[in-house]
C-alpha cells in the first residue's frame, strides 16, 4: 500500500463536494424512483440513488429489505416498473443485462456465480469479452484482427490475475479455488469488463476480520487503480461505515435514510430497522 504514483489520474482524488451532498448533475449512476413488485409484494419502491464518478457508496438494510433486488434492477436482471436509471448520462433502464454491462456496469453476486468448470484465466478472459468484437468468420479463419484481439484479451486477463495474485492458479478450474479467492476472482472478472461502476453484493460475506480488512483495502485500491465507482451491499456495519462515503439504507423496499456514515449511524429509523440485528 505504499505505491501511490499512478493514483493521480483517477477521479475521486480531485477535491469533490462534501460527501453526502452528491452533485446530482455529474453523478455516474443516477436512479430515480425505481421500483418493482412481484405479485402483490412491493420488493423495491421509489428507490433513488446517485453515485459520483469514482465514488464509494453503500447500500445497507436488514435481511429482505430489497438490496439484491435493487442490484437486479440496476443491472437489468429485472426491468424496473417505475422510475429511470442513468449511467454516465445515458439511460439504461429497459436495456438488457449484457447491454448494461457494455454500458459500463459490472457486478458480483451474493452467492458466488463463477463459471466453475472454466479455468481461472478463462473466467477473467470472459469478462474482457464484452470489450471485443467476436465474429464467426474471424474465429474460424483466424483473421489478423481476431488474433490480435485474442492476444489482447489474454494479456489483459493475465494482468488482472497478477493484480489479484491469482496468476499461479490461472489454469485451475475456478471451482477448485478456496472461498476467499473465488470472491476475489469474481471481482477480477467484473473488472475485466472495464466498468465505470462496480456493484459488489456482500463481498465480505463469510470472511474473517483479517480478510475483511484486506477486502476494505482492496476496494479502496480498486477505485484508485481502476478509477471505478463502487456501490456496495454489505451486512458488516464496521466495513461499511469505514469505507463508504455515502450510505443508503433500505427497509421493506423503501429508502429510510441516506447520508454520510456518521449521519446514518445516528438515525433513529435506521437503529429501529436494525434493532435485534447484530451490527
Amino acid at each position: 500500500m505504499s505505491d501511490h504514483t499512478q493514483a493521480n489520474h483517477t477521479a475521486d482524488h480531485a477535491p469533490g463536494p462534501q460527501p453526502g451532498a452528491t452533485d446530482v448533475a455529474r453523478a455516474l449512476l443516477r436512479a430515480e424512483g425505481i421500483g418493482i413488485s412481484f405479485g402483490g409484494l412491493k420488493a423495491v419502491q421509489g428507490l433513488s440513488l446517485a453515485v459520483p464518478p469514482g465514488g464509494l457508496d453503500g447500500l445497507i438494510g436488514p435481511n429482505g429489505a430489497g438490496k439484491t433486488t435493487a442490484f437486479n434492477l440496476l443491472t437489468g436482471v429485472y426491468r424496473a416498473q417505475t422510475g429511470s436509471i442513468t449511467l454516465d448520462g445515458r439511460r439504461i433502464d429497459g436495456l438488457r443485462p449484457h447491454q448494461i454491462a457494455k454500458a459500463g456496469m459490472a457486478r458480483t453476486f451474493q452467492n458466488i456465480r463463477l463459471f466453475g468448470n472454466l479455468s481461472v484465466l478463462d473466467n477473467v478472459r470472459l469478462g474482457a469479452h464484452v470489450r471485443g468484437r467476436h465474429t464467426l468468420v474471424g474465429t474460424l479463419f483466424r483473421t489478423p484482427a481476431y488474433i490480435a484481439q485474442e492476444r489482447a484479451i489474454l494479456a489483459r486477463a493475465r494482468q488482472l490475475l497478477g493484480v489479484f495474485n491469482l496468476l499461479s492458479r490461472a489454469d485451475e478450474p475456478a471451482k477448485s479455488l478456496p472461498y476467499g479467492d473465488q470472491r476475489r476472482l469474481e471481482i477480477a472478472r467484473a473488472l475485466a469488463t472495464e466498468p465505470k461502476l462496480l456493484l459488489l453484493d456482500e463481498p465480505a460475506a463469510g470472511m474473517n476480520p483479517q480478510e475483511k480488512r484486506d477486502l476494505a483495502r482492496t476496494i479502496q485500491r480498486l477505485r484508485r487503480e481502476f478509477g471505478v465507482g463502487v456501490l456496495l451491499i454489505e451486512h458488516d456495519m464496521g466495513l461499511v461505515m469505514d469505507i463508504c462515503e455515502r450510505i443508503t439504507v433500505l427497509d421493506h423496499g423503501e429508502v429510510i435514510c441516506h447520508g454520510v456514515p456518521a449521519h446514518v449511524q445516528n438515525d433513529p429509523k435506521v437503529i429501529e430497522a436494525y434493532l435485534g440485528e447484530p451490527g
Partner: peptide, 29 residues
C-alpha cells in the same frame, strides 16, 4: 477446436456454466 478455444467459445461455455452470470458479464445470450 478453433471455436472452443476462442472468445466465442468461452461465451458458449459461460452460458452453459451460468446464464445469469454470463449475461451480467456482457455476453449477448
Amino acid at each position: 477446436y478453433r471455436l472452443k478455444f476462442s472468445s466465442s467459445g468461452r461465451a458458449f461455455l459461460s452460458i452453459r456454466e451460468d446464464e445469469i452470470a454470463a449475461r451480467a458479464m456482457g455476453v449477448n445470450l
